[in-house]
Design a protein around this nucleic acid. Sequence first.
DNA 1: GCAATACTAATCGTATACGATTTCGTACTT
DNA 2: AAGTACGAAATCGTATACGATTAGTATTGC
Lengths: 226, 226
Amino acid sequence: MNETATATVTAAGSKSQQAYEAVKARIVEGTYTPGYRLVLASLAKDLGFSVVPVREAIRRLEAEGLVKFERNVGATVAGIDPTEYLYTMQTLSIVEGAATALSAPLVGEADVARARAVNQKMRECLDHFDPVRFTQLNQDFHSVLFEHCPNPHILDLVHRGWNRLGSLRSSTFRFVPGRAHDSVDEHEALLQLIEAGADAATIEKAARLHRSATLDAYLAQAQPLP
Amino acid sequence: MNETATATVTAAGSKSQQAYEAVKARIVEGTYTPGYRLVLASLAKDLGFSVVPVREAIRRLEAEGLVKFERNVGATVAGIDPTEYLYTMQTLSIVEGAATALSAPLVGEADVARARAVNQKMRECLDHFDPVRFTQLNQDFHSVLFEHCPNPHILDLVHRGWNRLGSLRSSTFRFVPGRAHDSVDEHEALLQLIEAGADAATIEKAARLHRSATLDAYLAQAQPLP
DNA sequence: GCAATACTAATCGTATACGATTTCGTACTT
DNA sequence: AAGTACGAAATCGTATACGATTAGTATTGC
């Protein structure tokens, strides 16, 4: 059997949990593309489990918005129509902004240095532009900034938002390449705010606008998503 | 697809759904108090279903934070230690503030009038103070203000927050009676902001502070929760 | 008398089985 | 020929059954 390289090796005994993580991984990494039909029996046979744990896993993924479920019909990998993208990005702008602001006082020098290093890689990435790598680095960067958020509820909401966007992380910056440059600059500005111990409201506003700007750039592009 | 405020007519064919709603109702209305142990077999026998749909319902409630679940041990109605209360209120202050701001442009005169009527009842309620009724009216009031939020994700987060607080809605204002008076005044101020077509940021800030103030009042009280 | 261990009861986790519902293809009717 | 009605295949929903794990209790050894 093959394991996902990025997996945290949870090795959770529960098969529901295993199924959950397996399916989630396949969705996020793109093995199951949006619209893909998730048949319980097939998945169960594929994973070697019975349908019951798989079913539970699917319902959990539904709750997170990663799959769409229709009674007596089945589950499909949640699509990302532009409307959903807008909703998700808007929600993320709000909760991530808050998380970043709440996290800021707990971000130490080492964290800032790490974030800055990531941002530097992003800047280098601008030349021979690789959207996938860039978006991955982007997530790494922001993770450093909000991961210290002391409120686990908010942090969870942020993670869910990123997960939902994960399905199209390969394409986010592909559609708005011009945005990448500004993004890197805004990152540096954000770091300086944090270093300076800026007001929570200021940091929140900056973080939110940073995300909103990406959303706006996408909307301006008005390119239909796959 | 989604149930309106006037629930109870759902009668969703799925037994999972029925079980979900039944258990949720009993938690929110207080039949199952925090810490109550939810035994699958007992619930199933009680509801007349098998354990499988009940199990699914419990997991959904877990995802919403209404019950706590421990593997191979069982589920209990989620307690509300002060820490959790703080987290939930803080999260709610953020998402409800955003929802209210996004909703504001869509709130018509009729809505404002309705909200004001509710607030008037709350003011009358101040004399012979009934915490339960007051908190119910409070929810009604805010529902009018955020229910038009065009982003369903955010709206859903607001609903979840209110649900989590539902278990102690009978006690929220019981512990901070002095807060009730200020709350009514802030409601009126909020209505005037909306009527005047105030800036989204202004409305968001006001709505958030309104909730934060309740949280702060509670924290100042520093009374341990049941 | 106290503590550690073995045993029992309760409960959860998963598998298998069967009934219910939907969907799609085919044949028949107009 | 087109639309409708019927039927079969696929899939989901739920029930029942059994194995696995935990918690509580009694017993035994020191």
